[in-house]
Design a protein around this nucleic acid. Structure first.
Lengths: 232, 232, 232, 232
DNA sequence: TATGAATGAGGGTTCATTCAT
DNA sequence: CATGAATGAACCCTCATTCAT
């Protein structure tokens, strides 16, 4: 019973911390708010996590694990599914992790914030979770680009950034988007629609990358260090 | 000398505030830090701007004006330049405003932060600066998509988000990118290269949007509220 | 010990606040002074009372309760004592509450100040403590005036003000009185003597109110809206 | 013209200071408020009066002179008027000085405040203005009491306090009175009525002081240091 | 003579943290 | 294990004052 209560308090603290930290940021969030929401004493967070920093670190670790378990990057697709479908699943799960409104939706929000405003807890998360995710996305991109391009190629990296950028923008600029596209809803159907668009947009780009090379070249007014498929 | 000193202090405060606010955010930044950096008294910010809020508002307004003057969205291109070139200029100037290292480099950083963590000072900035910028970008996109599509079309709006998302990601996830792509430099040449890639990627997508429709349709596993060119 | 210490600090804060607030007024008094005097931390007042306002409110409530318990308006007289003796007890206890030098002497001082410079904490004190006191005094006055006059009569109200005014003046103009009547001592005997005088002065007035009516009428040079016993 | 403006500013500052100081007290009042009301620069008060303290001192001196000139204690009565009428005039003028709403009504308010919360500027005012006023009142009282009683007698002093106390109470406890006697108006007629009552009440007491002695003696339960007419 | 700009001390309040129980 | 009480540093802001013109 004591143990239960102890673990229970710890979990309630983590849940509350997720909500508050993801909504207000590390600095703006206050330990008191978190503890009040978790129906715990102010001193509990220091007892369990050693302080505000410790709570945040613990939260960050759990955030990724929980988020990925809830919305895995392949969304249950078999490993041998077509690359196009796997890209769509990756994008869709990405959006769900960041925009989902259900309990624990803060996982992705917290990560997005961490990338923008990295704390010292970031590095371990990057190595443990982000790098593998990135590698997985790049393998999909390389497969779509074809021509035997390596997932480590600079072009693949850039395309990976283009895709992830589109996903994160939706969440990060939500305040702006609410003004620019007020009819956009972030319910399940809205998220699905966004995933479709981003997938469509990106596939169009990837599938035609070589054909359009000269156009970009022209538009780039001579700056030609931009990687092209033939480069590698 | 009085006038000079008066305006001077005000300008020094703005400069320091830009640096600190863009680096730490509104809440985490402290008036003391800003004043120390500006070699001004703590009370000066209240005298000149009426408080922390006022300083931030003034800064936000100036940030956009200064940034746009330094790197205008058309980068000096004639109004009748090809849409492709104007898109490239838009993207390039966007990156320069956010990534530039010169004095006032915080302009873009500040805006990116404001979009992620909007304060009450955001609304006026949106109306005065962001909406026109967005309209300009959409007009370019509509021209490239052709078929007489309206700049207000949902598809154009989504593509606009795709493009802006790619640009902002570069800045926003700098901490991650430093790990994912450690060879990326953010000097003039590096930024130019990034602009080329994003332009290329986006043009490939836009130019082939209709041809790829069925691919996205397949990948989207039946969710078809995603707009397609034929829709409008 | 925890409980003791906890309540102890709260009580020390109240005691110090009483001294400081009554001496300097709400605005001029500083939380830091109070805390220093109470050997407590600056944050303690916010922990226990929620802020300067809360401390003042709590103090005001306690002041009246403590003061009335220490010097009840009837001074232990039986309820059926003659009205004259009850009036004397009322006046005497009033002076004791305001001029007493013992611990908690600030009770009356605080109230006097509050009446002169009312804060938003006044209303509740008025309803809870002052109105009953006033009603009690008016019942005594009505009994002395006789003729079946109602305690709510305008004349009774005015006489009540005359009596309370005499009592409060002693305290309020202490600075002046020290000059005008330097031989006045505010020890137990001095206060008792003052109570005797005020009682005497007021009884003389009340007992002869009807007989003197024409005198006042003459002196009032025609302004006759002053209530007289016959009025009601 | 320069001189005019200078003197003008000085006068406007005094007028504004009177209003603000009398309404908020010395500490709570701010130089900025006064200067804004006087349409003068913040530094003007330091230039003309040497600081906040100096302004207050200057104001206090002027307050009494102006107030007494506006409402002299005899209200124009001939020096040989009956004592009863002179008492009424004294009381009436006292109330007018404190409760008047016209421009410059702050004179009395300021003095009342000063008596309650004496600053170091009080002493000179007491000697120059209050002592003569008090002596004048005592001469009236002594004349009414008759029996050749001296104006310096302890009884006369006490009666003087009783009368002044009634007058000041009306002003000082205005916040309470608004609750206890909400039908009381402080226009010219209301003030006149109050003056009538206080005069009436006091005359009744004074005229019958000797007759009632034994009553007070009884009520005073043995404390007999209260002065009686026969004593001196 | 008069003023806009700038100052430093101090205001109340909030915070993460620690202590004794 | 857990908690209510207490802490001191730092927050933004306001003030009377002074400075340079």
């Amino acid at each position: 019973m004591t143990q239960d209560s102890g673990e229970d308090t710890k979990q309630r603290l983590l849940a509350a911390a997720g909500e508050v930290f993801s909504k207000q940021g590390f600095k703006a969030a206050t330990v008191r708010t978190i503890c009040r929401m978790a129906r715990a004493n102010v001193a509990a967070v220091h007892y369990h996590f050693g302080g505000k920093d410790g709570l945040y670190s613990a939260l960050l670790s759990e955030a990724f694990v929980t988020g990925l378990r809830r919305n895995p990057p392949d969304m249950g697709l078999p490993a041998d599914a077509p690359a196009e479908e796997r890209l769509h699943a990756f994008i869709h799960s990405f959006l769900l992790r960041m925009l989902g409104d259900g309990k624990g939706a803060w996982c992705g929000k917290l990560m997005a914030r961490e990338m923008f405003e990295p704390t010292q807890a970031l590095s371990q998360v990057v190595e443990r979770h982000i790098l593998p995710l990135s590698a997985y996305l790049r393998s999909i991109i390389a497969e779509i680009l074809g021509n035997g391009i390596s997932p480590e190629d600079k072009l693949v990296r850039q395309c990976s950034m283009s895709i992830v950028g589109q996903c994160q923008y939706i969440f990060r600029s939500r305040a702006i988007i609410d003004v620019l596209a007020p009819d956009l809803r972030f319910d399940e159907a809205g998220i699905s629609g966004l995933a479709d668009h981003i997938t469509h947009f990106s596939l169009c780009a990837l599938k035609n990358f070589s054909h359009c090379a000269q156009i970009a070249g022209t538009a780039a007014s001579g700056h030609e260090q931009s990687a092209s498929p033939q480069e590698s």
